[in-house]
């Protein structure tokens, strides 16, 4: 992926297996969110291919891409709930637009989804009336309402306190284990990575690509790449200390 002369990602190859929680991690500015946007079709890669369920997304026209989007859920970093709608309306929106279900059934499914994310009873609240953590959970309920096979989460713990963040990690794990949804999470939060992920890839800004892939628990101790161990062990890279006096 290039922006003008600036290549952000180059030679990035990986697979996500059905039913797993897969984390795309790395430091700030390494291209995590760019990669996620490309996977879900918001941005087009300058080169290369992305296959979802065996379909090459580059070959899809706008209508086919929209159908593909209906089969995936996305939690945005800011939750991206519609401020003018109640939580119930936000969660029901995909059902109202994409199904012919009667209003009673839509309400029942909406309440079930809110119950799953522990927001039962908040259907008449507006997003601005909820805390950041609750907004994230409502965002997950909306993303999951059509029971997508894949759920993408962009920095789910961003801006949350440690307890709320841990609760959200538990929810992600619970939904993955319960429904079997494949989850792709973009984050640099170590707690989230260790609490949720089955596998990770680590991107690096200077390498402009993947520098590690596998089980984060093993990579933390066994990786030969110092950039990887530095990241997992929250160590400041030596080059950044150059010139510092002690």
């Amino acid at each position: 992926m290039r922006y003008g002369d600036n290549t952000v990602l180059d030679n990035v190859n990986f697979e996500v297996h059905a039913g797993e929680i897969f984390v795309i991690m790395g430091g700030s500015g390494c291209g995590k969110s760019t990669l996620l946007k490309q996977i879900i079709g918001i941005e087009t890669p300058t080169e290369g291919r992305i296959w979802i369920n065996g379909t090459d997304t580059a070959l899809l026209d706008e209508v086919e891409l929209r159908k593909l989007h209906m089969g995936i859920g996305m939690l945005f970093q800011s939750s991206a709930l519609f401020g003018s709608m109640t939580i119930g309306e936000n969660v029901s929106l995909p059902l109202t637009e994409f199904t012919n279900l009667p209003a009673d059934d839509i309400e029942l499914i909406m309440k079930m989804k809110l119950g799953m994310v522990e927001l039962a009873g908040y259907d008449n609240h507006f997003p601005s009336e909820l805390s950041g953590g609750m907004q994230k959970r409502a965002g997950i309920a909306r993303a999951m309402v059509l029971d997508p096979a894949m759920l993408f989460l962009d920095e789910p713990s961003a801006g949350l306190d440690p307890v709320t963040s841990a609760e959200l990690d538990m929810l992600i794990k619970k939904l993955n284990e319960g429904i079997g949804t494949t989850m792709v999470i973009v984050t640099h939060e170590l707690e989230t990575i260790f609490n949720t992920s089955h596998r990770i890839i680590m991107l690096d800004k200077d390498a402009r690509g993947i520098i590690a892939e596998g089980d984060p628990r093993k990579l933390r101790t066994d990786s030969d790449d110092q950039r990887v161990t530095d990241f997992f062990n929250r160590r400041v890279a030596e080059k950044k200390n150059e010139g510092m006096t002690t």
């Binding site: 079930m112 809110l114 119950g115 009873g121 908040y122 008449n124």
Partner: peptide, 19 residues
């Protein structure tokens, strides 16, 4: 696992915010 995710009480939970 899927059945366990459904919180039966939430299906009939009254709204905490009144219209």
């Amino acid at each position: 696992g899927i059945m366990s995710l459904i919180d039966r009480q939430s299906l009939s939970a009254p709204s905490l915010a009144t219209k």
